[in-house]
Nucleic acid binder design. Sequence first.
DNA 1: AGTGACATGGCATTCGAATGCATGCTAGGA
DNA 2: TCCTAGCATGCATTCGAATGCCATGTCACT
Lengths: 331, 331
Amino acid sequence: MSRATSYDVATAAGVAQSTVSRCFRADSTISAETRTKVLQVAEQLGYVPNAMARSLITRRSNMVAVIATRFTMRGNPDLIYALGESLSAAGKSLLLVTVENDWPTSDALRGALEYPLDGLISCAMLAEAEIRSFLRRGVSLLFYNRSVSLPRIDCVKTDNATAAADVARRLHAAGHRRLLCVAGPPDAPVSQERIAGFMAGLAACGVAPPDVLHADYAYAGGRAAFLAHLATAPRPDAVFCANDQLALGVLDACRFDLGLDVPADISVVGFDDVPEGARPTYELTTLRQNSVEMARMAIELLLRRMQDPALPARRLIVPATLVARASARLA
Amino acid sequence: MSRATSYDVATAAGVAQSTVSRCFRADSTISAETRTKVLQVAEQLGYVPNAMARSLITRRSNMVAVIATRFTMRGNPDLIYALGESLSAAGKSLLLVTVENDWPTSDALRGALEYPLDGLISCAMLAEAEIRSFLRRGVSLLFYNRSVSLPRIDCVKTDNATAAADVARRLHAAGHRRLLCVAGPPDAPVSQERIAGFMAGLAACGVAPPDVLHADYAYAGGRAAFLAHLATAPRPDAVFCANDQLALGVLDACRFDLGLDVPADISVVGFDDVPEGARPTYELTTLRQNSVEMARMAIELLLRRMQDPALPARRLIVPATLVARASARLA
DNA sequence: AGTGACATGGCATTCGAATGCATGCTAGGA
DNA sequence: TCCTAGCATGCATTCGAATGCCATGTCACT
């Protein structure tokens, strides 16, 4: 009933345990004949090498943890899948750690992170003490879409600020003067960067910072926050949203709740380029963040660091490309 | 630089390794004084118990693997997150195994599954030999949205067939006579069940089986397959799709490519109830599969089986509820 | 036949934590 | 004062696979 061990296989095949072990490594010092026999016996007994026992002695677990927030998974539907594929192509396993928001408590992480990880990709922020503890334990770290300025920590992120600033300039150049921002949660770093970039772009045009609404990164939140705002405030002629879900909510509020013409009456811009935004019902103008490609690059950087932990920190800033569809008038 | 061990802590605290170990278990046979001191030293050294060494001796890894296909992750955006939350609430870690389609090869799974899993939740099909091998190794198995008729294997699934049959009857009762099915990949079990259920419902009304198109479970695939079909075939007055992504593609094909009025000219029904379908641009009529709730139940069943592997197989068939919105005329 | 080179396999140890058992210590009762 | 109960701690072994080192076997060549 219980799992067969290399000793069981050794006994059944009439060889030593060490021989069985060698048959499963790419170790050439085994005759083809012995290997065939051992593998056959192993097959019969249902023997599979125990990765934990192996890790203990080799000191590599082949496990990479990914810390993902609920909204990372929603807003980048293919990110986790892409990370999984890249990791398994490299012979690594993916330990998924789900967290509620961008600032998880240590407790939420503790359980999963007791495994001796080879690497860690975090889509959330971690306390500096926590980060140092990983480094000390020899875990390679990479932050996805967050900046962390510590030595030996890589990061792959979208150039949120530049892209947002560029959109701000274009909206301004197209004549928009009453602007509004719809941000994610106040403590969400990605949202902060995007909004700050937008502000900086406006400032460069000599425009005072517009109002900023906060919602929960989701469609319903964006729609509700926008409508609530309009109950007391004058209508903006352009809305910049921290992500596409919010933007779709705002867009629908404009069309269905307020009966506005988009983009004649009001321009709406999102960020991410989720699949829905591209469809003819939305035609959302947005900034594309290619998460599949970023996932590939993240794994590449991480694997490189696992080979050579002493590398200097690398920061891959991927430009976001403007996808001009029909929801905004841009210059 | 390397990870501190319980021996390091023991030496530094002037106690035995076994004492350190006891301080980290909920083991009462430790004086409060010693425990405090040991935990403090551990904190200083950055010691964290090594889950792999622990698993080796306790024979429980606390790891549960989840096998998910690309389309499972796309079509049930919150499923993985919900599984992660339920598992971590139970003190288990989630090993995510991504696979391309519903019939993964053994090789695609091998790497991850060398860890001695406590449990496994699969959203893909597995060969019977593979399943038996897991059982023999003492892994508790649960299939999500697939049926497997083997003893000791649980499953949680939507009642695809009944729900689809019911929709078929209602479409027929509302007067639709020229029906069409848009299915997912031919080998996708969920799609097969839904389409078969729909056919059965029609058969009960004395209607001959309609054409079935196959696409890749995605929006673009559904839209393209439907348009290609209409190039040579007469227009149906109702389309049943194996999931919402396909249905949204068909819906947009009707409205934007063909200029049809939905549902006056044609009814479109999906399955899953993804968030986009609920929005005012779509108002998709669909069958709701509550994947968050199903995830919770799946974990509950799995945990129960992990405690008592001898339980008889349990099969939780969750009814899908009809969400009648505006994309179909139903009786 | 004898020697050396090399291929193959076995032995024993190791990784880090958990745990059964033995022992030490303290306190309380006789 | 001595004995015993009971808690706290230490010792030694264990989990399963990998690996350095050594022993054996094989073959070729002289």
